[in-house]
Design a protein around this nucleic acid. Structure first.
Lengths: 220, 220, 220, 220
DNA sequence: GATGAATGAGGGTTCATTCAT
DNA sequence: AATGAATGAACCCTCATTCAT
């Protein structure tokens, strides 16, 4: 019967959720199976009925999180002809990929265990950054062909755009030295990235000057 | 007498050096005081004569490493008038800050323990990235005043430059998905960052077009 | 109905067979009920429907094995008048009782758990060695009365014969320091025991000298 | 200083003594390190300062016991010309080797773990039975050369003698189905073995008859 | 009657820390 | 000041046993 299969799936999720909480708080080494069991409200033995070891549970947590984390990130982009609007949207997604609470934790934990779990680092990379980059590169090719952006290596360009979305503030956030950003801060970050990208890759006639952050009122 | 003070300082260093080796290899949780004692060639008891706990020893290691890591990074820059050359040099230093083996490990370890040791993340940040950014921002102000760069918020500009030095390849490297970069790869990374920065912040008359990777012969 | 009774008996056997395999391979402590369930192709719950505990299942296995192990050992002996031939046959059975693979394992397992399961040691003893000894003693009485053997305590004599069948090689085999013996080795062992027994208990007129292994050319 | 070396040796012994008690009572698998620690009156951690694992502690116990068990067994034999007296003495030692409380336990535990620890079975064999057998075989050669025993393979003869010392009673004792034997019982066992051995290997003129178990008072 | 998920005590082992020497 | 033996809590994991289905 379905129940015989569904029930275990639910409990598996229940355990993974407990593991998420604990791994997130303590990291891999710092997390204890006892605490995970407690958090998941199951017995320690049950943990081992669903996962053969701590590392397997960790792997399940990381790979699931890597995948779910990004589902909403790849919905189709609206109005594919407004260059600035689309870049804005992509930048927002890249920033979210970096700064969303779940992503931050995942990044930290994957980085710190990359030596021990190279496969997980791979999964993380492929599920997140790589997909975003490939997605963008594909779109860039179209724009270049349409003459809306100058010709350039689309992968390099996507890389630059991605890099611009990871300002020093993002690094501080990753180091937990900053509280979560608010919408306004993110908007600034995103706008800055888009503008700078267009300065360099755009087909503008005017060159990079004469606009930008209100603070620098150009001219006398 | 001096010897009564100096000798302990040397032993302290000896211990920290042992700790570096082990923390670097095993991370915080993975490192054992026994192994550090062994590596430092002192007894476990002596460890506790110099550091009251494992976490204190860890703190000493991280903060010392954070500081020494960057001494050579702030030597005076040669020929302060050649804009491109200087940006190149700064970019090289930023990339080194990110990709040097010792830096990579420190970054990983600080990130992974940031939750447990927020002070260390702070120290790391202030000793490394923040100093580099402040240094660059100061220099940018000069350049803007000299009219060699357009007016802009120097901190934002420095942030953008820093961001451009951390391309996706750097993230892959941090995830240990890539072997160390060679000089050529770094040069490409650096050049790309400098060029893009100049496209946006430079005082060029021509705008961003008409140059760059041979591949894109911009047709009419 | 019979089926309602017979079916359970078959399943009981099925479980015991699984238990045999596992106990034989892992010993009592080393065997897990899970593995036995797996081996017997029943669920763990079913195990407990047929046996109230691991130790009870172990008891069932040992006592059944003790009994089945020896069924073929007590078939009638052919030609009950040829002394040497019969002793030979008895010795062969005794050696088999000691060296047959199933017996070896049973011996080891019973010995090792004798402290915890004294009843099983008793069962083993009574099902195996004691029956063989009693059987032989009865036969010896006949032979003594018939004058084919000198008068002696038949139990002591049977004990001596049994002892002679357990040479140091047998001990080494029990210690798993020797591979299984081949037919020739067993024949030598058996012949030696029979000869020595006859030297001592036989009614020979000549005394023990003047025969035996060709190697010892009888002195002048 | 010596104390720095001696102290650990004493504690090592203290631990092994605790282990002896527990292994003896529970066997290898049944013994828990916690219980051994308790019995030895040290902490569980200390166990691991002296032995890297349970199996190593077990090995230390078995091999030490194998060796000490037999030291007194090989003192020189008095009056090496009285054949019967010497055989008597050797038989006593063989029986002791089999029935001494320490030996019994050792035999049981080595047999039961022979599959898992073949090296220990080897050590046991070489320290005990093999030495006794070799010793006796050497002595037998002398006796044969001196004409006090008939010519025969000395190893086979020693094996027979050893076998005769392990009557069914010994097996029952090993199965813990019998209380320790008293001196009288041992004497009977020993005498029986010696007599039977002499019947077969002796150079008597009269043959095997006319004597034996005290019960049959030999006529005038 | 059969199942197997759930349990929790207990297994071997590690390790930060202490303290007598 | 330096040592390293001793500690015991906590670790990951196993398993006999139970019980709702």
């Amino acid at each position: 019967m379905a129940a015989q299969e569904e029930h275990p799936v639910q409990k598996r999720q229940q355990i993974i959720r407990g593991a998420e909480t604990v791994f997130t708080e303590c990291g891999y080494e710092g997390a204890s199976m006892s605490r995970i069991a407690l958090q998941a409200a199951v017995s320690k033995g049950t943990l081992y009925n669903y996962f053969t070891s701590k590392s397997e549970l960790f792997a399940a947590f990381v790979s699931q999180r890597s995948q779910t984390m990004l589902t909403e990130m790849f919905e189709p982009i609206a109005d594919p002809d407004d260059l600035g609007a689309i870049l804005h949207q992509i930048a927002q997604r890249m920033v979210a990929l970096v700064l969303a609470p779940g992503s931050l934790v995942l990044y930290r934990i994957v980085i710190s265990e990359a030596g021990k779990f190279p496969d997980l680092a791979q999964i993380y990379w492929e599920s997140g950054p790589e997909r975003v980059l490939a997605h963008m590169a594909g779109w860039l090719v179209q724009q270049m062909q349409a003459g809306r952006l100058r010709q350039a290596d689309p992968d390099v360009a996507a890389g630059h755009f991605f890099a611009l979305c990871q300002t020093p503030s993002c690094m501080k956030r990753r180091l937990q030295l900053l509280p979560p950003m608010n919408a306004g801060e993110i908007e600034l970050l995103v706008s800055g990235a888009v503008q700078m990208f267009l300065d360099s890759y755009g087909r503008s006639l005017t060159g990079p000057s004469e606009r930008r952050d209100a603070s620098c009122g150009a001219g006398p």
